[in-house]
Design a protein around this nucleic acid. Structure first.
Length: 440
RNA sequence: GUGGCUGUAGCUCAGUUGGCAGAGCACCGGGUUGUGGUCCCGGUUGUCGUGGGUUCAAUUCCCAUCAGUCACCCCA
């Protein structure tokens, strides 16, 4: 067998990177639970028609089929696809299990998702999302839209990563405004506005004319709206100053004011109303979120979501929801690439117990057992080589302590300082900071 | 899915106008009859991404493919 090669877009981390990932996941999970979100995992596959129900992502969905399936049925209505986000499976789950759930239902879900995109830095075909959603029956109170950024803000701020800024907008503002100025294709207008950062106002104006049929005056108004940005409710005055009126617009402004003011009270500096944020997914109907790391804006959004009123509905039952999702793999991939996220050692081991000779390995094993029984991650040296080599084994992996069993007295050495002291395996404890690898 | 750039040791890279493949770091051994990191001495490291083609000869030229990256698309 020839040497295996990586598969494009399916990243695999090193053990130290995986330790960081697990640490990050633990923190995110702890924060989600702190806010009372219940855990959920859904299957990896959904019926293809479910996946394609909303949005034009068909090209991205990975189909799944048996090797020996009948040749004529792999793409029928019953075909299965890997989910490409966690919101669509969740909406399906809610419909399927509505009878067993208490509403409003708050859940978190941390799972892999798959998208058949062309990969590049921070963009993968298989990646982890950490998602929270709240759904309710019939109507969903707008204050939930204000809670989302607070939760992920807490989660992200608990991590050793650069500070984040969550940009918030409301689809109703855009759609109401566009309608107010007489534009008929709000989707096309949104898509054009979404490129503002990348291609600049002049090109966006051209795009608006080409794809959304905007006149010069309409394009100018749309751009004026998109350029509004404020960390507080003052954005509302700026919007009204543009002189466009529409009931939907007013509704959107009211909702966004609430989100921004709530955030300003509980997490100053976290959120900013940014009326250019559009979000590609067309199932969003209200508040939308995007998140950037300060100083890493060029990496794009590492956490986004929004409110969806029509994703989960069957017959007369309607379950409006709001959710936001942290792109864990992107976050990590980008920071790994920038060398901005490291761990203090390559293994969980805190203590390496040296082996004096193979005949004495039992004594070392007993020391390790005593340490482990008190929660100290410990391994025994793989060989009874010279102590210098055993110390080096520990050093190479970043293991901070080496334990030397003695005939009468054991000793433990902190190999960073070189300090070596008598110790007893039944009582000795490392300082708290050394117990586990430090992520930073 | 479309187009551009890149691909030499574990890492960062040099190099061959087509003729036995290099440096630094890392790694291994010794200096040190059991205590590492500095220092000194010695050593290993590669199907030159993979598969074809042209050629007496290809790591070098050509084609394809895979991977990485960038733009489009889309988006975490």
């Amino acid at each position: 067998m020839s040497k295996p090669t990586p598969i494009s877009g399916f990243p695999e981390w090193t053990p130290p990177q995986r330790m960081i990932e697990q640490y990050v996941l633990d923190r995110i999970r702890a924060t989600f639970e702190l806010y009372g979100f219940a855990p959920l995992e859904t299957r990896a596959v959904e019926p293809l028609d479910q996946l394609l129900r909303k949005g034009e992502t068909s090209k991205e969905v990975y189909l799944i089929r048996r090797l020996q399936a009948e040749a004529d049925s792999p793409t029928g209505d019953d075909a299965l696809g890997l989910h490409f986000d966690l919101t669509v499976p969740f909406a399906r789950y809610v419909l399927e299990n509505a009878g067993k759930l208490q509403f409003p239902f708050r859940r978190y879900q941390i799972q892999k998702v798959w998208r058949g995109e062309r990969p590049q830095e921070g963009r993968y075909r298989e990646f982890l999302q950490a998602d929270i959603d709240i759904v309710d029956r019939d109507t969903l109170a707008p204050h939930h839209e204000a809670e989302m950024p607070l939760v992920v803000g807490d989660a992200l701020r608990s991590l050793p990563i650069p500070p984040v800024r969550i940009q918030v907008n409301n689809r109703k503002i855009c759609e109401g405004f566009y309608r107010g100025v007489g534009l008929t294709d709000p989707e096309a207008a949104l898509r054009a506005v979404d490129k503002l950062d990348k291609i600049g106002p002049a090109r966006v104006a051209e795009l608006l004319a080409e794809t959304a049929g905007a006149s010069e005056a309409q394009a100018k108004a749309v751009l004026a709206l998109a350029e509004i940005s404020a960390p507080d409710a003052s954005f509302a005055d700026a919007v009204r100053a543009l002189g466009v009126t529409d009931p939907l617009l007013d509704e959107g402004i009211e909702e966004l004011v609430r989100v921004v003011e709530t955030a300003a009270e509980h997490a100053p500096g976290l959120c900013v109303a940014d009326l250019r944020i559009a979000r590609g997914l067309d199932y969003y109907t209200g508040t939308v979120y995007e998140t950037q790391m300060v100083g890493y804006e060029r990496f794009g959004s590492i956490c986004s979501g929004g409110r969806y009123d029509n994703l989960a509905s069957a017959g007369t039952a309607r379950f409006p929801g709001v959710g936001i999702s942290i792109g864990v793999t992107r976050l990590l991939g980008l920071l790994f690439g920038a060398g901005a996220l490291t761990v203090s050692r390559d293994v969980p081991t805190c203590v390496l117990v040296a082996v004096t000779s193979e005949e004495q390995r039992g004594a070392s094993n007993r020391v390790a057992e005593a340490l482990r029984s008190r929660g100290v991650p410990t391994e025994v040296s793989p060989s009874a080589a010279k102590f210098g080599k055993q110390i080096r084994y520990a050093e190479r992996r970043g293991i901070p302590y080496v334990w030397f069993p003695g005939a009468e007295q054991d000793e433990v050495k902190d190999i960073r300082s070189g300090e070596q002291v008598p110790a007893e395996a039944g009582v000795w404890m490392p300082p708290e900071v050394d117990l586990k690898p430090l992520v930073g």
